[in-house]
Design a binder for these strands. Structure first.
Length: 559
RNA sequence: GGGCCUGUAGCCUAGCCUGGAAGGGCGUCUGGCUUCUAACCAGAAGAUCCAGGGUUCGAAUCCCUGCAGGCCCGCCA
C-alpha cells in the first residue's frame, strides 16, 4: 500500500490494540481486504473469553475508533468492525506519492540476475505448449527489472545429443519445401531424418556416430550441429520476436564441449564423496539425498567416459555464476527432478544453485498436445489469428492502415500474453483458442482500452497536470480507484517474493475495472473537482502503463 | 511402487503461503451510446469450494485418509 495509507491504518490499529490491552481483551486480528471499508477488526476471538456477543465488541471498538483523526466511519457487521478511512484527508498526499518515480519499485540491493527461459530444442517451430515458457520468463524478467534489479535473459540452445545430430543429418540429406519460415521448412528435414533413424540402420549408425563425435569434442562435427541448430533457430527467433520475448543472449551447449568446460566438470565431480563408478560410467550416489523414485544413481558420464546432457547443464550453471549473482530458470514441470539433481551436483562442486520457476503444461480442450499424434497448435498460427481478429475490430476506427496494423499487433499479441499470464503457473492450463481470441472481459484489450480512455481525457484537457488540490469531497468511485492505486506496491512486492506473475494481470483487471467505473460516474473536464480528477487520471494512466509494461504489453493512446 | 503439482457455478479462473464475510471473467437473460472512446457500464440467474475425518470461536485455506487429472523416476535430451 502507499505509505500514506499504511500510516493511517497502522495508527488506527495501534489505537485498537491499546483499547484491547487496557480492557484485557485478546489481540484482535485485522483483515486488510475487507469487503466493506478499508480494513476490518475481527472481534470473534474476544467473544468467547469475554462471554459477550462479538457484534457488541465490534460496536464498542467502533465507537472509540471513530474519534481517530484518520477514520471517516466505522460499521459493525456480525463480529466485524469495518473501518473506512478518511480519503479526503489523505487523497492529495496519496496522489503525490503515486506520481513519484519510485512508487511500486522495491527497496532492495540491486542484483545481477540471469533468467534462462524458453530454451526449446531447436527441432521445429514453437507450438502453444511451449509458449508459456517465453511469456512467463520474459515477464518475470521485466518484473524483476521494474523492481530494481539488473536482469538479463538467455536461451540455452541444446545443440548436442541425439536430436541435434538428427537435425544435422536431416539438413544435410533433405531439402525443405523452400518456402515460408525457416523453422517450418527445416522441420520437414528433421521429420524425415527422424523417420530414417527409426527405419534405416545405415542412417541410425551415421547419426549415432555423429553423437559420439560431438561428445568427444570433434570440432568439425560440433560446428556442423551448431550451424544446423542456428538455421532452425533463425525461424524460431522470428516467432519470439513477434511475441516480444526474444532472449538477449543465446548460449550454445556445444560451446561447453568445445571449450573443455565439460571435461573439467567431470573431473571435479569424480572427486565428490558421492561419486561411484559402474562399468566405467560415473555417477553420484543419491541414496541418502531424499530422492524419490526407483533410480538413485545420477550418471554424469557414459561407459565410454563421455558427457551427458546433465553434465553439460552443470557446466552451464557454473558458467552462469561466473557471470551473475543470481540465476533463475523457467522450466516445465517435467524438469522438477532434473532441477533437483542439478542442485545436488552444484552443491557437491561448492557452486551456487539456481532458483527455478515451474509451470504446468498446456493442454488442448480435447487432451494433451502432442506432436506425434498430430495434435499440435503452432504459436505462429495463433499469433496470426489473434492479430487478424484485433485488426477486424479496429476496422471502424479512424486510423491510417499502417497505424491499425501496428495497433492490432500490440492488442493481439498482448491479449495472447495476458491470457497465459493471468493463470498461476502451477495450474494446468487448457489452451482454448476461442477463449484466447475473446478480446473482452479479463483481457489485455480491456486494460488497454481503459488506458486509451485515460489518454483521451488528458488529450482533451490539453493543459499541464496541476498541483493536486482536493476541492470537493470524494465520491465512492474515486475512493475505490484511489484505494486500488494505493495497493500497487504490495502487488509488485508479492509478485516478486513469490515469483508469481499472475498477481500482475489480476491487479490490472481490478484497476482497469475501477477506472471504467470512475469514468462512468465522474466527469473530469469542467467538473468542480477537475483538479483532483485530472490527477487521478494521470495516476491511473501511469500505473496502467507500468503494469502492462511488466507483462510486456504496450499501453495505447488510442484504440 | 515412490515423489511433486492440480481439483472452486455450464466453462475458465482469483483467494490457499500468513484460517475470519466465497471475488472476477466467458456464456445466458434484462437495461444503458446527441454528454471526456459502448473493446464500456448497470442489474439478474448460476457454488454441497473433489469426498470423508481432525484441529479451531471460526476451515476453500492448516493436518490426516481417500478419489480424480497432470508431470516425473534412462549410461535420452
Amino acid at each position: 500500500m502507499s505509505q500514506k495509507v499504511i500510516g493511517v491504518i497502522d495508527e488506527v490499529v495501534k489505537t485498537a490494540t491499546i483499547i484491547a490491552k487496557k480492557r484485557d481483551w485478546p489481540v484482535l486480528p485485522i483483515d486488510r481486504n475487507s469487503p466493506k471499508g478499508d480494513f476490518a477488526i475481527i472481534c470473534f476471538p474476544a467473544a468467547k473469553i469475554l462471554k459477550k456477543d462479538p457484534s457488541w465488541i465490534a460496536t464498542e471498538i467502533g465507537k472509540i475508533l471513530i474519534d481517530n483523526e484518520g477514520v471517516l466511519s466505522t460499521e459493525t457487521e456480525k463480529g466485524y468492525c469495518n473501518v473506512t478511512i478518511d480519503w479526503n484527508k489523505i487523497g492529495a498526499d496519496t496522489i503525490l506519492e503515486i506520481m513519484g518515480t519510485n512508487y511500486g519499485k522495491g527497496n532492495v540491493k540491486k542484483e545481477k540476475i540471469l533468467i534462462e527461459h524458453t530454451s526449446a530444442n531447436p527441432t521445429g517451430p514453437f507450438h502453444m505448449g511451449r509458449a508459456r515458457n517465453p511469456i512467463i520468463g520474459d515477464s518475470i524478467a521485466r518484473l524483476l527489472e521494474y523492481y530494481g534489479h539488473d536482469v538479463s535473459t538467455e536461451y540455452y540452445v541444446n545443440d548436442t545429443g541425439r536430436q541435434a545430430a538428427t537435425l544435422a543429418f536431416g539438413v544435410a540429406n533433405y531439402k525443405g519445401n523452400g518456402n515460408g519460415k525457416k523453422d517450418h521448412e527445416l522441420v520437414e528435414c528433421y521429420r524425415s531424418a527422424s523417420e530414417d533413424l527409426k527405419n534405416s540402420e545405415d542412417a541410425k549408425s551415421k547419426i549415432y556416430e555423429k553423437m559420439e563425435l560431438i561428445e568427444s569434442g570433434n570440432k568439425k562435427v560440433l560446428n556442423e550441429v551448431k550451424d544446423a541448430a542456428k538455421m532452425m533457430l533463425e525461424g524460431m527467433k522470428e516467432s519470439l520476436k513477434i511475441l516480444g520475448t526474444e532472449a538477449e543472449t543465446y548460449f550454445h551447449e556445444s560451446d561447453l564441449i568445445s571449450s573443455g568446460e565439460v571435461v573439467k566438470v567431470i573431473e571435479l565431480l569424480k572427486k565428490s564423496n558421492l561419486c561411484k563408478e559402474e562399468k566405467g560410467a560415473y555417477y553420484l550416489d543419491l541414496a541418502k539425498e531424499n530422492i524419490a523414485g526407483r533410480n538413485q544413481k545420477f550418471f554424469f558420464t557414459r561407459e565410454n567416459g563421455l558427457s551427458l546432457y546433465t553434465t553439460r547443464d552443470i557446466a552451464y550453471h557454473i558458467d552462469k555464476f561466473r557471470r551473475f549473482d543470481r540465476a533463475l530458470n523457467i522450466l516445465g514441470e517435467d524438469h522438477k527432478l532434473q532441477s533437483k539433481l542439478l542442485g545436488i551436483a552444484l552443491r557437491e562442486l561448492n557452486s551456487e544453485r539456481p532458483q527455478a520457476l515451474f509451470y504446468s503444461f498446456v493442454n488442448l480442450p480435447g487432451g494433451k498436445m502432442s506432436t506425434r499424434a498430430g495434435r499440435v497448435v503452432y504459436l505462429d498460427d495463433v499469433m496470426e489469428q489473434i492479430v487478424k481478429l484485433a485488426l477486424e475490430k479496429l476496422s471502424e476506427t479512424d486510423l491510417s492502415n499502417i497505424d491499425k496494423e501496428i495497433l492490432a499487433e500490440q492488442i493481439g499479441i498482448g491479449a495472447l500474453r495476458y491470457n497465459i499470464l493471468k493463470v498461476q503457473a502451477e495450474k494446468g492450463f487448457t489452451f482454448n483458442i476461442d477463449e484466447a481470441l475473446n478480446l473482452q472481459g479479463d483481457s489485455a484489450p480491456f486494460a488497454m482500452y481503459s488506458h486509451a480512455r485515460a489518454s483521451a481525457i488528458l488529450r482533451n484537457y490539453s493543459k499541464n497536470t496541476p498541483n493536486c488540490k482536493l476541492e470537493n469531497s470524494l465520491v465512492e468511485s474515486e475512493i475505490r480507484l484511489l484505494r486500488t492505486l494505493s495497493k500497487w506496491p504490495n502487488t509488485v512486492e508479492k509478485a516478486v517474493d513469490n515469483l508469481a506473475i499472475h498477481y500482475i494481470p489480476n491487479y490490472i483487471h481490478t484497476l482497469a475495472s475501477d477506472f471504467n467505473q470512475f469514468y462512468r460516474d465522474c466527469p473530469v473536464i469542467g467538473n468542480n473537482n477537475e483538479n483532483f480528477r485530472i490527477n487521478l487520471v494521470v495516476c491511473s494512466k501511469k500505473i496502467l502503463s507500468e503494469s502492462l509494461s511488466i507483462l510486456g504489453l504496450k499501453a495505447p493512446e488510442i484504440m
